[in-house]
Design a protein around this nucleic acid. Structure first.
Lengths: 310, 310
DNA sequence: TAAAAATACTCCATAGGTATTTTAT
DNA sequence: ATAAAATACCTATGGAGTATTTTTA
């Protein structure tokens, strides 16, 4: 058994065809066929069913392929450890961000990232928490930027921000009269929400308490973006809750914005990686960059100290 | 990079000398030297400091070796997956058992194990819970037999027995007059305990409550084995608590034994493996064998159903 | 100076390439 | 009939052996 064979195995599973797998491995089809055969022979099991239109893993094959992926991942991590030790910052970074953070935090990061680490290729995916954590768990993403706690022992959370919620209220809405809000003031009437699936939605409902459950509004429109909610309010309809990053540039000037009285409701924004993640300086940089780009009042309470690695 | 190089790397770390590492890998010293050099060259880092008396890993080397071990473990697990799929039961099983279970459960297992799986080499270590879990975590042991819950997300617990505690009382001790005991009856006077470090000791103290803390006994002797405690009682001194397996053959005949009134205090005995353990049929067999050899009243409450594998 | 590691050189196992045949629908 | 995989055969890389030199405490 050797690593090449494991790579061929995984490539064959990914493509489903010897020819395609061979191409993707930059070898000829017989070369890949031979190695897969040899591996099957050595292990004494059939890993793929050969059909007219390619190769389908057997049940045993599936389990072996899964283990092969784990082994190759470990080898990849070895290379990353070396890369980190050499102080390099190269390769690919697959970053996942939730939709209620992406538009506000990513623009703050791209400049620093591309300038500081020109050798680093960053690939961003915008996904809701559920899909993001799933991808972090099975190593389809390297780093997540989302709201914690997640309470998943396989994932490591590095808190970065404690982002306050603010109310964004149309002048026609009764709440507009309040100068300072408490969660108890919030009524379901006129409250705009994000769609199901956004963690931000459940956080808002959490703040409002069970009152928001009794939904008797004549018109409900659940939007996919905070920007849409803001537009609704700006057109003099109802109110909504927004995270402070969504209104950073208008927080002191827009009379429709209201802060909550202390203790302000906040959401904990964290960088999240798999426990086995080894490129820790990269994490440290991302955290520092975020803190640099964001007002200090948003920094997570434990933000003063250096990240405790392991 | 290839698996051979990683094995050489780990062997060199294990032995600390090129010559010895080469011997253990069944190759010549230049062969191993060359491959380690090649790996260093490919990775672009020095992994070992060459000194007069062998090779010492550099700080970077240590991290790389650790990753190499992880990679080789993944490959080993791939082989084990195949072995399991083929229905084989071969190789080595490193089993750790706590001292208060070992003398009572191991004799029940050896016969079945060696007869059912002649190809399996079993290596048993008797260790206290703390050391056992540490070895399970870093893969120096395959299976542990100990008292749960451990609450370690890296380890998987398969409950096997709910083993009652019984009191073993000398006729001269006041407790001898009780026919049925409750934990509230237990006094610190005359209670023999195991040494610090045995989980059984803390479980007993737990049952006795804080009363046992006020230790005013004129003679205290903390033994290393339950058998010694039994001897002390048999020589007409004080009393002790014993797990039922320690008195299985005398539980109905020995007048010095007392059961607790329901709900009987019990300790949960489980098989414990690392979450990544793949030889699940072996676990299943061990569990079944234990249940077969032990009276049904000791079977864990959930023992009826088949183990839920993941 | 003596033990340990590195180097020099040879051999051969084997991964991979090209050309061709076999297989399955 | 035809696309896909397997086989045949050749080449060359590189891993491992033996003999020897270099290093360092």
């Amino acid at each position: 058994m050797n690593l090449q064979q494991l790579e061929y195995l995984v490539a064959l599973d990914n493509t489903g065809q010897f020819q395609l797998a061979a191409e993707r491995c930059f070898v000829t089809q017989p070369a890949l066929s031979m190695q897969v055969q040899k591996l099957e022979e050595e292990l004494g099991v059939v890993l793929f069913e050969r059909t007219r239109r390619g190769a389908v893993p057997t049940p045993t094959g599936r389990k072996v392929i899964e283990q092969a992926r784990a082994a190759l991942r470990a080898v990849q991590q070895l290379r990353e450890v070396v890369s980190v030790e050499k102080g390099e910052m190269v390769g690919e970074l697959r970053l996942g961000v939730i939709p209620t953070l992406a538009p506000y935090l990513l623009p703050l990061l791209v400049g620093e990232l591309t300038q500081t680490y020109p050798g680093l290729r960053v690939r961003v995916e915008e996904l809701q928490t559920e899909h993001l954590t799933e991808r972090l768990r099975d190593h389809r993403l390297d780093v997540g930027l989302l709201v914690t706690p997640l309470d998943d022992p396989r994932l490591r959370e590095i808190p970065v921000l404690d982002e306050p919620f603010l109310a964004y209220i149309a002048p026609t809405h009764p709440l507009y009269q309040h100068q300072m809000l408490t969660p108890a003031d919030l009524t379901p009437e006129g409250l705009w929400l994000l769609q199901q699936g956004h963690c931000f939605r459940s956080q808002v409902l959490n703040i409002c308490g069970t009152r928001a459950d009794t939904d008797t509004r004549p018109l409900t429109y659940e939007s996919g973006s905070i920007e849409t909610l803001k537009r609704l309010v700006r057109h003099n309809h109802g109110y909504t809750l927004v995270p402070e990053l969504a209104v950073l540039d208008e927080v002191d000037t827009n009379p429709m914005l209201r802060r909550f009285a202390a203790p302000e409701p906040v959401r904990e924004v964290s960088l999240v990686v798999h426990q086995t993640f080894v490129r820790l300086p990269l994490l440290d940089f991302l955290r520092a960059a975020l803190l640099r780009q964001v007002p200090a009042r948003l920094h997570a309470s434990a933000a003063g100290r250096k990240i405790q690695w392991k």
